[in-house]
């Protein structure tokens, strides 16, 4: 327990120090890398909520990541061209306001997660993994052929959206925004995992009968968890789209679902801060291994394999003891 806390604090401090040093020494690219890690961490935290606490292995979280991205892309695109998104049943204008975009991203991906979850949770185990993958693929193919918003080419948004009082195009300021969002999400998820809902969810994962005995249906617990999970990953998608000033169907691809899963597993399933450690390590690996060889995916694969086979419980399992904090 204690070790895990030190690791959490160290991690948060590290994620703050690296970009600050980069800022002082005028190496803005490292700020971009850190921002990327923070955003991926948020996506992973979203998945971890369903996977780590609820035991729901979703292989389709790219759907929510992409929806968040397209929420940003579509709103900003319409703001750019001064056209309404739709006029019926109510008028929705485009927007360049990050706060509004986040809200839309959260609502849209939560609704999608609610619908997908309601259907998928009728299955369990491998069937659940595969049906979530199928929903992800549906979004992928739909976005490729939906030419209004660029299809496979995606939607470039030339300038980052606006945040009151900040210049979002400045890497360090955009990093600050993402870091604060990460912190808020971490607090929120920590609170939820300690709440009676969180406790019940984890109890359901271990033994569904125990929950039924106290009058709760596991199905509705899982559904709420899946919806929250989708909403958080959707928010990460919106942030990611703003980082790149670009959205495209690749955000929906099953590789993205796999990568989000990797962040969670690398960090340690069920640890609140796990995905942050996982995403940071993944980005670092990508960045350093890329320098070694044209065939760096081989090294990445070998490393991941090593992590699965020899360090059960990911980074947190390695450094902060085996047992999961909330069991």
């Amino acid at each position: 327990m204690k070790k895990e806390m030190y690791l959490n604090i160290g991690l948060m401090a590290l994620m703050l120090v690296v970009p600050l040093v980069a800022w002082v020494s005028d190496e803005p690219f490292w700020i971009t890398l850190a921002t990327r890690a923070v955003i991926f961490a948020i996506a992973g935290i979203g998945l971890n909520f369903a996977l780590g606490f609820g035991g729901l292995v979703s292989f389709g979280h790219a759907a929510f990541f992409g929806l968040g991205g397209y929420a940003m892309g579509i709103l900003a695109y319409h703001a750019q061209t001064y056209t309404p998104v739709f006029e019926w049943p109510f008028l929705l204008e485009g927007s360049k306001s990050m706060l509004l975009i986040w809200l839309v991203a959260i609502v849209v991906s939560a609704l999608a997660a609610l619908a997908i979850g309601a259907l998928s949770l009728r299955t369990t185990g491998v069937y659940f993994i595969m049906i979530t993958l199928a929903f992800g693929q549906m979004f992928y193919y739909f976005s490729i052929s939906w030419s209004t918003y660029g299809g496979e080419d995606g939607l470039p948004i030339y300038v980052r959206n606006e945040f009151p009082g900040l210049n979002t195009m400045d890497p360090i300021q955009y990093f600050a925004i993402c870091y604060v969002v990460l912190t808020l999400i971490l607090i929120l998820v920590h609170r939820m995992s300690q709440s009676s809902f969180g406790m019940m969810l984890q109890a359901a994962r271990q033994n569904e009968k125990r929950v039924q005995a106290v009058g709760q249906t596991p199905y509705s617990l899982y559904l709420v968890a899946f919806t929250i999970s989708g909403a958080i990953t959707g928010l990460a998608g919106a942030l990611f789209a703003d980082l790149n000033r670009f959205v495209s169907p690749t955000m929906f691809s099953w590789h993205v679902s796999g990568e989000i899963m990797i962040f969670v597993i690398l960090g340690g399933v069920g640890r609140v801060f796990g995905p942050l450690a996982g995403a940071a390590l993944y980005i670092l690996l990508e960045h350093t291994l890329g320098g070694l060889s044209e065939y760096w995916h081989i090294y990445l694969g070998a490393l991941l394999l090593g992590v699965v086979l020899f360090t059960r419980g990911g980074i947190y399992g390695l450094f902060a003891g085996r047992e999961v904090a909330h069991d």
Partner: peptide
């Protein structure tokens, strides 16, 4: 292992096989 570990490990194998074949 659970399905999660299996998914990750075999995902890693895809990376190794694909780039190994290209190599």
């Amino acid at each position: 292992r659970d399905h999660l570990d299996q998914v990750l490990a075999t995902f890693a194998l895809i990376l190794i096989f694909s780039e190994g074949t290209r190599w």
